[in-house]
């Protein structure tokens, strides 16, 4: 039951990711801001979008967190107790790598997060595995390891506050944060 819901949610996220991948210009506030569409931060950033790409570049500083969220996607999601990158997660990380190459002065933290359904220490270790999975793939894609630092927050920094599968699947994430 939980797994099904989780998969359903993940595929929804995946669909959103695809939309974001094809259209770098946000059409509206909600669902076009990359795979982080469900987070508070990205929907806030999304509200600054407009209908022409020209005005977006005027407002969004290239290489900024906002640029990353709007045009690339700042986060990937993981299965319950998993740290492998799904196909969607890999394509997000690939866009992130391209974006880092286009913005060579940017350095970033890669945060690994877990949902609340684990014990504190285990989740710290799991968050480290997730952050490392993203970081390793970025390095494989040609990003210098000196530009991306993995950090685990375990279950300490949820973005979704509910106690249900939807919230938990949003919280099992790897997030790129521009330094």
């Amino acid at each position: 039951m939980r797994l099904n819901l989780g998969l359903k949610f993940l595929s929804m996220i995946a669909a959103l990711t695809l939309v974001a991948a094809c259209e770098t210009v946000p059409e509206d506030t909600g669902d076009s801001s990359g795979s982080g569409a469900t987070s508070q931060a990205s929907s806030t950033s999304g509200s600054t979008g407009s209908s022409t790409s020209g005005s977006v570049t005027n407002k969004v500083q290239p290489g900024s967190q906002e640029d990353l969220v709007l045009n690339v996607g700042d986060r990937v999601f993981f299965g319950f107790d998993k740290y492998n990158l799904t196909a969607e997660a890999r394509s997000t990380v690939e866009r992130q790598a391209a974006w880092l190459k286009a913005n060579p002065s940017v350095t970033a933290s890669i945060e690994g997060h877990a949902d609340e359904r684990g014990t504190r220490e285990y989740n710290l270790a799991l968050g480290d595995r997730r952050a490392t999975a993203v970081t390793n793939y970025l390095v494989t894609l040609g990003i210098s390891s000196s530009r991306v630092a993995a950090i685990s927050y375990g279950k300490e920094r949820p973005v979704a506050l509910g106690h249900n599968d939807d919230a938990w699947s949003q919280n099992r994430r790897g997030v790129m944060t521009v330094n």
Binding site: L124, D128, A131, T132, N136, S152
Partner: peptide, 9 residues
């Protein structure tokens, strides 16, 4: 204590 290095604790 634990130490996490390269994804392994």
């Amino acid at each position: 204590m634990s130490m996490a290095e390269k994804g392994n604790s």
